[in-house]
């Protein structure tokens, strides 16, 4: 304890400063000012305005105009013409129906599989951490690769899936999965489910791990069976994350036509044509920007409506 007397750090006159006061530079000073937070935000706000909000506003505006790169002579304001045309467009309604089937089927499949995977992987056994990482891999694969691998595997002549199914006796002959209108959407959905289920597995596994263990112990004391535990302890704890991840997933499924564009291009016929694909092809193939923008606007409105209703509904159901 006598060492403490050595805390007389100053030798001699203690009034002489040994460590000078700090003086900040100009940038340091600036960073202490009140507006610094906004200065930090400025670049991102500018970017968001310039490359997101402006284009989006422009997109909404385009929906009210005629704009075809192929027929520049017709450009101009047309009011709600496109929207009226959309209401009368049978392809729109067909695409809407396909979108519904596609999104609902994919989300339900991905959620079910993701939940199953999360439950299976939520064990403290050797190797399960690695497995949890491997299961995530499909989600990180580009659509182009995922789509083409499956196109290869589902090939009518040389596909491994046909081979496996025939060997197992499920099928008698090889099938052309993407050539039959009734089958194409289902096959595409299977691919999408494989591609997207890790997203749910990831979030649900994290949420499962966060459930306090004593909740289960309490339930076990009450004599709850495994199924009861799942229904009364696990599911309620996962509720919020399920609600949130479903919204996110629905939004990205509605908005992105990539996997269908790669797998089927909308065919055969229009049996796998979804709204986003329809709008994209209008823009990409026909350069009919006005109509495509109007379609995108309708999609956006439908999504807003869905998100609002869905969040509303899941809040109501909780009470």
């Amino acid at each position: 304890m006598t060492a403490l007397s050595e805390a007389r750090l100053g030798d001699g006159d203690r009034r002489v400063r040994r460590v000078p006061h700090v003086r900040l530079g100009a940038l340091g000073r600036l960073s202490e000012r009140r507006g610094w937070a906004w200065l930090l935000l400025l670049p991102s706000l500018v970017m968001i305005l310039a490359i997101i909000l402006y284009p989006t506003g422009y997109g909404l505006w385009l929906g009210l105009h005629e704009m075809r790169l192929t027929r520049p002579d017709r450009d101009g304001f047309v009011g709600l013409k496109h929207f009226i045309a959309i209401a009368d467009d049978p392809i729109f309604w067909l695409s809407l129906r396909n979108t519904l089937v596609w999104v609902v089927g994919s989300v339900v499949g991905e959620l079910a599989l993701g939940l199953a995977a999360a439950l299976v992987l939520n064990k403290d056994l050797p190797g399960f951490k690695l497995a949890a990482a491997l299961v995530l891999l499909p989600w990180f694969l580009p659509n182009v690769v995922a789509g083409n691998i499956w196109a290869m595997m589902l090939d009518p002549r040389l596909g491994v899936i046909n081979d496996v199914l025939v060997r197992m006796g499920v099928l008698t002959t090889y099938r052309a999965w993407f050539a039959e209108p009734d089958l194409a959407l289902a096959a595409a959905m299977a691919v999408e489910i494989w591609h997207g289920f890790p997203f749910f597995a990831l979030l649900l596994l994290a949420a499962l791990k966060a459930i306090p263990q004593d909740l289960y112990e309490a339930a076990a004391c009450d004599g709850a069976k495994a199924w009861d535990q799942f229904v009364h302890v696990t599911l309620p704890q996962l509720r919020m994350i399920i609600v949130a991840s479903v919204v996110l997933r629905v939004i990205s499924l509605v908005n992105s036509p990539e996997i269908l564009l790669i797998l089927t291009g909308g065919g055969p016929g229009r049996s796998t044509q979804v709204l986003s694909l329809y709008a994209f092809l209008k823009a990409y193939k026909e350069f009919n920007f006005g109509y495509a923008s109007a379609l995108a606007t309708v999609m956006f409105l439908l999504l807003m409506l869905f998100s609002w209703a869905y969040v509303r509904l899941s809040n109501v159901m909780r009470d």
């Binding site: 284009p55 908005n255 994209f280 823009a283 606007t297 956006f300």
Partner: peptide, 21 residues
């Protein structure tokens, strides 16, 4: 929230104006 809502815009809706701009 704004940063999040931005994700709701359909890709197609942004692609066309981006193309023009």
């Amino acid at each position: 929230l704004g940063y999040l809502v931005v994700r709701m815009f359909p890709a197609v809706m942004i692609i066309i104006p981006l193309f023009i701009v």
